[in-house]
Structures are given as structure tokens and as C-alpha cells.
């Protein structure tokens, strides 16, 4: 209707929306240039080799080396995520419970490793965990072991170092979710007759689940694509998906195959997001909204 067109409030809103779009446009351009375009190019490359072909995908599903890499990578990401949760939850809980200034100290210690390069930390773990490293020496001196343990150049070493590097991505969302839990609720639970442990199980834990979920997803997805740490600490025997990609490009100059692996990994991650989002009763946790 004509009245709608001349309605000044509508005009005002449209101008506001235009300005908002303008504000967001630099970020949109960056995302478009650095994410959408390369990923599209990647997808194109995985199915084009002098014409359309699914050869790259056929190879992935047929050759066992790819299967082994994918299953290894998922198992690795799963192990890292579970360990990060088991180690991170108590840290976040303590940081929430102790109050000032200790919470600041604990969270600073959690974030501190962020400022060190991943490469440096990987080498540091190499020094610590190798056959003649600090850990093996210590265990031998304490008389706990006779032979040095194989802590590195295998999956174990990779998991240890990766957990260390990804731990902040677990602790930070946990801490943020736990901080939002009102202390009143814990006091209310106590006043209604619940001791510390039942209060934790029935009130604190369920209300911290959004943080658990965020941490699990972040760490799992990051671990799936981890490259430097497995490359340095895996000893060449643990071939992650990311390493398959790198080898296809660097050793065999197989861009099409590398792209196909990348596309499948991306599809897996997206599938996980969808399943997690659907499966967990988040709306219930967040209060029936």
C-alpha cells in the first residue's frame, strides 16, 4: 500500500538496516575472500581433473590408508576431548569456587600457554617425554620403572601434547558457564537437604552443561584438524588426516586428492555440529525457552 511506502518509521528502519550492513561489510568481505572462496575452490578441485570426476573420492573410500587415517584421527580427537574434559572441569570448578583473587590467578595460568607458540610447546614436550627426557629420568630415579617408557613418537605423546595445547579451549567455556550459575541455587539446594555431592550432581552439573558442550565441540573440532603436534610427536607412525592432506600436496603433488580429504573432514565436522545441536536438550538446560 502507498501508506506503507511513505511511513517514515519504515524508511528510518530501512536506512538503519543499510547502515548495519555497511558496518558488517568489511568482515563479510574477509569471510568471503578467505573462507567461502577457498573452500569453494577446494570443492571444485576435488571433483575436476580435466573434466568432472569422482576418482579422488573413490580412492578415499577404497584405499585402506585413508580409512586408517580417518579412524585414527577420530579416535585421537575423541581421546583428547575426553581427557581435556576430565582435566579441565575440575580446574574451571575450582576457579569458580575460590573467589578473588585466586580465580584470576588460576585463569591466568590457564591462558598463559596461549602466548607461547604451538611449535615451541611441541618441542618442549619432545624434550620432556623422550627416552632420555625429564619424565623418564624422574620415574627411573624414583624406582618406578626399569626401562624408559615410550612416551613420545607415538599416539600417546601426541595425545599428551595436544591435550595440553587444547585445554584452554575446554576450560574457558566451562568457566564462563559455571560463573553464570547463581550461588543462591547451591544454597537453596543445601537448605532443601542436599549435601555437597547431590547438590553438584542435581544442580551444578546440569547447569554447567552448556559450557561442557561448547568445550567438547571446540576441542573435538580443533583436534580433528591438528597438524603440527602429531607431525612432530607422532614419530611418523600416527598419520592424521591433516598429515594425509599435507603429504598429498607436498610429496605427491596430488591437489585433487588433498582437496577431497579436506572436503570429507569438513563434511564430518558439520555433521557433528548438526547431530550435537539436535541431540542435546539444550533448551531444557537453558530454562525452557
Amino acid at each position: 500500500m502507498a501508506a506503507g511506502v511513505s511511513d517514515p518509521s519504515l524508511r528510518h528502519r530501512r536506512r538503519e538496516q543499510g547502515l548495519m550492513f555497511l558496518l558488517a561489510s568489511p568482515a563479510l568481505v574477509v569471510v568471503l575472500a578467505l573462507v567461502v572462496v577457498p573452500v569453494g575452490w577446494l570443492m571444485g578441485q576435488s571433483v575436476f581433473d580435466h573434466g568432472f570426476t569422482l576418482e579422488n573420492y573413490r580412492r578415499i573410500f577404497v584405499e585402506p590408508i585413508y580409512w586408517r587415517s580417518f579412524s585414527l584421527t577420530f579416535r585421537f580427537a575423541f581421546e583428547v576431548t575426553v581427557l581435556a574434559l576430565l582435566l579441565g572441569y575440575p580446574v574451571a570448578y575450582v576457579a569458580t569456587a575460590v573467589g578473588r583473587p585466586w580465580d584470576i590467578l588460576i585463569m591466568s595460568l590457564v591462558i598463559l600457554p596461549f602466548w607461547t607458540s604451538v611449535l615451541v610447546r611441541a618441542y618442549a614436550w619432545l624434550v620432556l617425554l623422550q627416552r632420555t627426557g625429564v619424565v623418564n629420568h624422574l620415574l627411573a630415579d624414583l624406582g618406578l620403572i626399569d626401562e624408559p617408557l615410550a612416551l613420545v613418537h607415538n599416539e600417546l605423546g601426541t595425545v599428551i601434547a595436544t591435550v595440553h595445547i587444547l585445554l584452554p579451549f575446554m576450560v574457558l567455556p566451562l568457566y564462563s558457564a559455571m560463573q553464570k550459575i547463581p550461588r543462591d541455587l547451591l544454597q537453596a539446594s543445601a537448605s532443601l537437604g542436599c549435601g555437597p555431592w547431590p547438590t553438584f550432581v542435581r544442580v551444578f552439573l546440569p547447569l554447567s552443561l552448556p559450557g561442557v558442550l561448547a568445550g567438547l565441540t571446540l576441542v573435538f573440532v580443533l583436534a580433528l584438524g591438528f597438524y603440527i603436534t602429531p607431525e612432530l610427536l607422532g614419530g611418523g607412525r600416527t598419520i592424521m588426516v591433516s598429515m594425509v592432506v599435507s603429504r598429498n600436496v607436498e610429496l605427491y603433488d596430488q591437489w585433487g586428492a588433498a582437496s577431497a580429504v579436506g572436503v570429507i573432514l569438513l563434511a564430518c565436522v558439520l555433521a557433528i555440529f548438526v547431530v550435537v545441536g539436535r541431540a542435546l536438550p539444550l533448551d531444557r538446560v537453558l530454562g525452557h525457552r
Binding site: P182, D184, Q187, A188, L192, P196
Partner: peptide
């Protein structure tokens, strides 16, 4: 400790458990 005192407390913020229904809150 509070959970052994057997006293009811009504909080200023109500402190209802947001992840439970009214019935579950009352049955706590």
C-alpha cells in the same frame, strides 16, 4: 552444615532451579 539443619529458606532471588519444572522444583 546447612543441609543438616532442616530449615526452609526463601531467597530474595527465589533461587528456583531453571533446569527443572515447577513440580520438580517443589519436589526437590
Amino acid at each position: 552444615p546447612p543441609h543438616k539443619r532442616d530449615i526452609g529458606i526463601v531467597f530474595q532471588s527465589y533461587a528456583l532451579f531453571p533446569h527443572m519444572t515447577v513440580g520438580e522444583n517443589v519436589a526437590f
